[in-house]
């Protein structure tokens, strides 16, 4: 298992955002956490990325623990774990003052000491695959939402993470682009054997991309199953209700 999450709980002052959530993610698998806004799915994702700290529970990425029963490893170890996790933010958070290429090269060159030419070649490789090669010198504000998202994907992938997380990947896209990004995500999982964790409230998108789905409500996982079986389960009232909304 590339990612193991055991009994994580996250509290904010008075309310519990994530409650006793457990799941695991296999190599090359695509898992979607779905639920309404406020269901705790984004908080769960942020905990897995280490942007937020859990109060209880265990998170292990590719054999390296991030935290064990609520106790975190030290800062240096956290960085090592985080290196294995890529993140595509909901609003992408590209660096506006850097070109597309510079956005992608910044971390490999400055943080991981990769040779500039090598990083550039690698970045261009990703850009070509994502059909963005001609935008290499452009700045983020010159790109459409879909293009920004692909740059964010390239920026995360160039570091060769084991898991890549998407926070609401369809929220900034029109339906046709959602379809495209679904292909891109599936390709990443298939070609690179990347494990993908998707946070979404878009049922159709989850249905189209994910191998497995976890359904969250009030911070808890309430349903879990293979995509093809879970959505067809007419007898499941909760799913049918959510689908019809």
């Amino acid at each position: 298992m590339v990612l193991q999450v055991k009994g994580i709980t996250k509290r904010f002052k008075t309310q519990i955002a994530v409650k006793d959530l457990s799941f695991s993610l296999a190599e090359g698998e695509i898992l979607a956490l779905i639920g309404k806004s406020g269901a705790g799915k984004t908080t769960a994702l942020r905990c897995i990325c280490g942007l937020e700290r859990v109060d209880e529970g265990t998170i292990v990425v590719d054999g390296l623990p991030l935290c064990t029963e609520g106790i975190y490893v030290d800062q240096k170890e956290v960085r090592k774990v985080r290196q294995k996790v890529g993140m595509v933010f909901q609003n992408f958070n590209l660096f506006p003052h850097l070109s597309v290429l510079e956005n992608i090269m910044e971390s490999p060159v400055r943080v991981y000491g990769m040779d500039k030419e090598e990083a550039k070649a690698k970045a261009m490789d990703f850009l070509r695959k994502l059909d963005l090669a001609e935008k290499a010198e452009a700045y983020p504000h010159e790109l459409s939402g879909g293009q920004k998202q692909r740059v964010a994907i390239a920026r995360a992938c160039v570091l060769e993470p084991k898991v890549i997380c998407f926070d609401e990947p369809t929220s900034a896209l029109d339906p046709q682009l959602s379809e495209e990004i679904a292909y891109v995500i599936k390709d990443l999982a298939k070609d690179r054997n990347l494990s993908v964790l998707i946070i979404t409230h878009d049922m159709n998108f989850a249905k189209r991309t994910a191998d497995r789905v976890i359904f969250m409500e009030n911070g808890e996982a309430v349903e879990e199953g293979r995509t093809e079986t879970l959505f067809e389960d007419i007898s499941n009232e909760r799913i049918q209700k959510f689908m019809s909304n």
Binding site: C49, G50, L51, R79, R82, Q83, V85, G86, M87, F89, N91, N93, L94, F95, E106, S107, R110, V111, Y112, R155, A156, L159
Partner: peptide
């Protein structure tokens, strides 16, 4: 989000401040 993106890219606090 700029800080968070930098953090996810492994940048140190110093790098984040100076470069981003």
């Amino acid at each position: 989000g700029q800080y968070e993106a930098a953090e996810m890219l492994g940048m140190s606090k110093r790098q984040t401040f100076l470069r981003v």
